[in-house]
Design a protein around this nucleic acid. Sequence first.
DNA 1: AAGATACTGTGTCTAAATTACACCATTAAA
DNA 2: TTTAATGGTGTAATTTAGACACAGTATCTT
Lengths: 236, 236
Amino acid sequence: MEQDLPKFDSAFSIDCVIFGFEAGELKILLIERSAEPFKDWFALPGNIVGHDESIDDGAKRILYELTGLRNMPIQQLHTFGGVNRHPLGRVVTVAYFALIRLTGQKELTPITEYARKAFWHPVKELPTLAFDHTEIFQTAFRRIRRRLNYQPIAFDLLPEKFTLTQLQSLYEVILDKQLDKRNFRKKMLSYGFLKELPEKQKGVSYRAAKLYKFDRRKYNKIFQNELNLDAGGPKA
Amino acid sequence: MEQDLPKFDSAFSIDCVIFGFEAGELKILLIERSAEPFKDWFALPGNIVGHDESIDDGAKRILYELTGLRNMPIQQLHTFGGVNRHPLGRVVTVAYFALIRLTGQKELTPITEYARKAFWHPVKELPTLAFDHTEIFQTAFRRIRRRLNYQPIAFDLLPEKFTLTQLQSLYEVILDKQLDKRNFRKKMLSYGFLKELPEKQKGVSYRAAKLYKFDRRKYNKIFQNELNLDAGGPKA
DNA sequence: AAGATACTGTGTCTAAATTACACCATTAAA
DNA sequence: TTTAATGGTGTAATTTAGACACAGTATCTT
């Protein structure tokens, strides 16, 4: 009801947890700060939201400025509003996350002067991050791990054409457990939204695997939002 | 990374979607506004967050001020940050939701002067609410409907002692579908976290049903966070 | 006290989904 | 031609979900 008159003495920011999958590892995009506070620390990419942009637009803009990526499926994660989380004043941050395709090794377009560099870092053995960014990352990771079971988010991380083994290995990395190959394939193919391509993997020194792609149209036709994408593996 | 210097020209508020279950209906707490903007409209209870309180603390405080309830399980829902959502300036609102037990018909302790009254309204046939509160409510309702399938949130809404029929009817109201009585009971009891009490329902003019209570300790022991609380009913 | 009313409480069978489990096939490189 | 590495496949056992109907009990009415 907003009965107290607002005082307009706060600011809010966006921080992004951007996941990518590369070389069999799940990674997130980090920057190295070149200015105080937290000078020389690693941090999540983020920025202050403008007075005249919605937080969703701000999130998209900031992601674009940091990565050159547009039209990414970006989603709100959680809002972190501890009193002293920012040294300069009251800054509430709205965290977003995105899952992006790291195929063509997009080079990261120059970052603003506050970041010395931006780079992909494996989520395993992440260093302590600036501000409360470690907590933000953990929240995001829990979220995608859970979501993997009922939304087709894996395909945002994979190249457009992928093998079933790549898909399984992504599931295994995110869920942090081994899955049974036959059961995984049976289940994935049974959904009916994977389209087998008339192509095979190239450049491997062993039998090349079939390539598949995710058919989002079929996915939408089959499920209207109710789906359990559990992967076929042992329960434990 | 918060590279732009924050301008501290914004405010943020909390809005609460507080669910209760009463007379077989799911309800939410609304207020009637007595001041502009949206004078005379119904709205979600909410308020501006203080400069020196975390948003979580602010949410708890606001809920307490409006209902007299403390220590409620209150959770963040989503943050709404459209540019023009508040007429007085940039106010980003962080929505929270809570599920509370409406047994003793807690009377709603006096609300601040901005609310003419506070009352419970069935979620069916909700009127259009002030600000973007209709959207906030819908987000909350989708969230609890989904969450009902994997978290024991039903027991927050029921009285401490309840019958299996009451439990089933709550599931039916939230999921908006009929469930099979035998399958529902079989499944609920199979989890092992319902404790049968040596008491029966009182004051009914027919055979009294057994009372149960939710044993949260057992629940925590059995599941460490991975659980599918689907209710046993037809799929459609 | 007999009957009406309204809800409680229970079991089985079938179909579907999940899980465990092992070997031959193919390709490229040595 | 042999080796190394991964691709690709099926069946049986178990578990889970879903469909389905009726007798039992407490209270109220007449």
